[in-house]
Each structure stands twice: as C-alpha cells, then as structure tokens.
Design a binder for these strands. Sequence first.
DNA 1: CAAAATAAGATTGTGTACAATAATAAATTG
DNA 2: CAATTTATTATTGTACACAATCTTATTTTG
Lengths: 160, 160
Amino acid sequence: MQRMDNINTPAIADLSPERLLCLDIQMCFALYSASLSMSKIYKPLLAELGLTYPQYLVMLALWAQNEQTVGELGERLFLDSGTLTPLLKRLEKLDYIQRVRSKQDERRVIVTLTERGDALRQQAVQVPVQIAAKTGCTLQELQSLNEQLTRLRSRLIANL
Amino acid sequence: MQRMDNINTPAIADLSPERLLCLDIQMCFALYSASLSMSKIYKPLLAELGLTYPQYLVMLALWAQNEQTVGELGERLFLDSGTLTPLLKRLEKLDYIQRVRSKQDERRVIVTLTERGDALRQQAVQVPVQIAAKTGCTLQELQSLNEQLTRLRSRLIANL
DNA sequence: CAAAATAAGATTGTGTACAATAATAAATTG
DNA sequence: CAATTTATTATTGTACACAATCTTATTTTG
C-alpha cells in the first residue's frame, strides 16, 4: 500500500519556521554530537591497536577487501584524497599497509595490507564486542539506526 | 509494561562475533558518514553567512541564550576549550560575538552576541528551511532520528 | 599522432576535535 | 591567613576533513 494523502504525517513545508528550525537543528546537532561521542568511545580501545577512528575505518575496508586504490577507499568511506593521503601515510609508517603505484596505470596508488596489518585483524575483533556493551544498544536499535542513517546519507549525498 | 524475557529481541551478547562486528561497524560508520554528509549539505548555505557548521552551532546556542561562558557553551555543545577558544576568536574577528573576562570571576570568559551577530539571526532563519528540502526527511524521521540519536549520545557520554 | 580534455593522487591552507599541559584565579583547609 | 586544591580558560601538538590547486598520467579527438 503506497502512502495516501496523509493526515498523520504533516509535510515539512506545512510546519511553522520556528518549529522547523527547532526540529531540524535538533536533529543535525544530535547527529553531530552523537558522532563525536561515538568516536570518543572508540578512542581508548583503538589506541591499544595504535589506530584512530578514521584509520580503523580504512583498516576495516581493507580487511573486507585487500588491495584497493586510494580512490576506491575514498568511495567506500566518503573521504577524498586530501584526507586519505596523509592518513594512509601514517598507516604505512605503522607498517599496517603498503602504498604502491600501479604498473598498469601510474596515476593509481594501490593500498595493500602488510602482514602486520593483516594480523591486527585478530586483535580488532574484540573491539566491537566491547563497544556494543558501552553503547547499550539493543539489536533493534542498531539495525534501525543503521538503516535510517544510511538512507539519510544517501539522500544527502544525492543532493550535494 | 516493562520488557519481558524477549524472544523477538535477541541480546547483543547472543550474537556471533561476526554478526556483531558487522552490525556495530555498520551503525558506527553510518553515523560517522551521515554526520559528515550533513555538514557538507550545510556548508554552502552557511558560507553565505560566513559561518562554518560548528560556528553555526555556537551562534544557535547564543541566539537561544545570550551571554554564556565558554564553559557553558562547551557543556551545551559537548566541546572543550581546545575547540572553542580558537573558534570563538574567529567569531570575534567576524564581529559576531564579544569575549569579555568576567569581573566577578576572572577565570571565566563571557561570550556575548554583537549587534551584527544578533542581526545575523534573521538571515539564518532561512537555513533550516532550505536544509529540510535537501534532507528529504519526513517529520517522523526527523523526530525519530532526533530521539534515537539523543538517547544514544546520553548512553555514550555516560560510559566515557 | 599531437593537442586538449579528463582522471588520480598529492599538496596547501583553513578550521575543527581533542589530549595534555600551562597559566591564572578562586575556593578550601589546616 | 598561607598553602593546597580546584576551577576556568588558553596553548600546544597531532590528526582529521575538505576546498582549491597542482602534478602527472591516461584518454579522447581533431
């Protein structure tokens, strides 16, 4: 059943500017502050692995699929080379990854896990277990939030 | 009715590490990337006001209540002086705020809107209207996300 | 094939975030 | 009341984010 002319869901446009302003700001701020709080929760756990939160995301992407170009990593993580290049250089200095220019296309830089970077995966498995306890989320909440935020992100990116 | 022994909501602890890892990571990444996408949506609109997104949040806090100390702003926005001090200096250079040491307690710095900063409010009212269109959220989504994210943030901060 | 256009990363500059530390002021306490 | 402790903000250093620009390599096109 498609949505009918809906009495229970007033359109955004029908709200008073004040109410709209209030809700919109609240949601955006909730998003912003929840995201910062989340990275603070991760910080001490990731510090044991020598990683920051964005570095952890890159490692997750590489553990899921090794050998990706900078561009591919950027597409998956929604980050550009200005963010990734220095971050990847730090991961390289830690000997978690290797950066090698492609022979087929000298413009591309291929990022590969080192042995040490691959081994780190075993240690990293415990991270989300400890995080889950700290977030105090039910499975429903995790799933629901994940879906809503992913949908939101899609719409935002489509309108950039 | 309090939650009973619930067949429909398996506990986090009952999940396999793989599934937990997957969900947890997805949610955290969704949060992180949605937050970054949101600030990208705001950026061009706020640029017209000469503001960054965190600066906009500070202005919103001051429009809601003028004359706040650095500490009070930090408590509302979940930011510390290391972030706020340079940000406030930039807002001061823009002549949107004033920073004055309290006479009663020389440790405190009181932040006040300038005439220009107060006037900016009129221009800023249109921002959330334009944002709402771009987010493509229903009222339900805004409310639901706001509540969920605020609850999440509370739990995260309680566990820092 | 040479010139122009496009693509992929790197670099530069600005502005957060935040831990750690410092500097100063106020409050507490022996 | 002097010494210690605590509170408030500022400073320093590291690491993102990202716009704008640059460099180099590939692709397209006349």
